[in-house]
Amino acid sequence: MNSAKERLINGLIKENPTFVLMLGMCPTLAVTTSAMNGLGMGLTTMVVLALSNAFISLLRNIIPDKVRIPAFIVIIASFVTMVELLLEGFIPSLYDALGIYIPLIVVNCIILGRAEAYASKNGVIASLFDGIGMGLGFSFALTCIGAVRELIGAGTLFGYKVMPESYVPSTIFIMAPGAFFVLALLTAVQNKIKIAGEKRGKDMSKIQSGCGSDCMNCKDMGCAQRMIKEEEEGKANG
């Protein structure tokens, strides 16, 4: 069970998909208008990620190498559709709040990235826990960002009023521009840590500066390509 624990910690802290790798930024910005929405989106993504990771790992010896990407996308899309139908049936309030971003989980680069980089090379149990770990990391990050935006933008936390009466919420933070500002500050903090780390001679290559920084180089698979390269380099080094 050691490797399972290691995968969980890896996803949650060491390779946190949002704070460290900066993947899947579209849903991160769009649904974090409140802590509750962030948590809901994170958990939904986690379920899809864990299931698709396990399933892809199960089929990794059957899927021919040449058509693996379309095959992965079909598997992921099937799980997303299932989760979408379940949400619509059982948690309609969350379904309405997340709207179009639920089907768009299919194109979230974290999921395809993990399928390529981990699940297609490792066993079922390890892949399942890798998915859960990454999903937990994603949920944690989305909840944090959502909480900050909700606190500043509406003065509430998970729907409960926490700020004093005299506090005037700056609504801009729960609107679209606020999302950009929060992410800008987040990447600035990340930059600062990276620069400070490099000065002390640490290897900071894991910390990325956003999907956008080199999209021209990661042609056909978007950000997923980068994750693969990293994983391979990691293997070569260790």
Binding site: I172, I195, S209
Partner: peptide, 22 residues
């Protein structure tokens, strides 16, 4: 500022554009 070089300043710009588009 050094920490804002690269992505952060672009995101701030995008945020200001979003305000304009509001």
């Amino acid at each position: 500022p050094e920490s804002f070089k690269g992505m952060p300043i672009v995101l701030v710009t995008a945020g200001l554009m979003a305000i304009a588009f509001c």
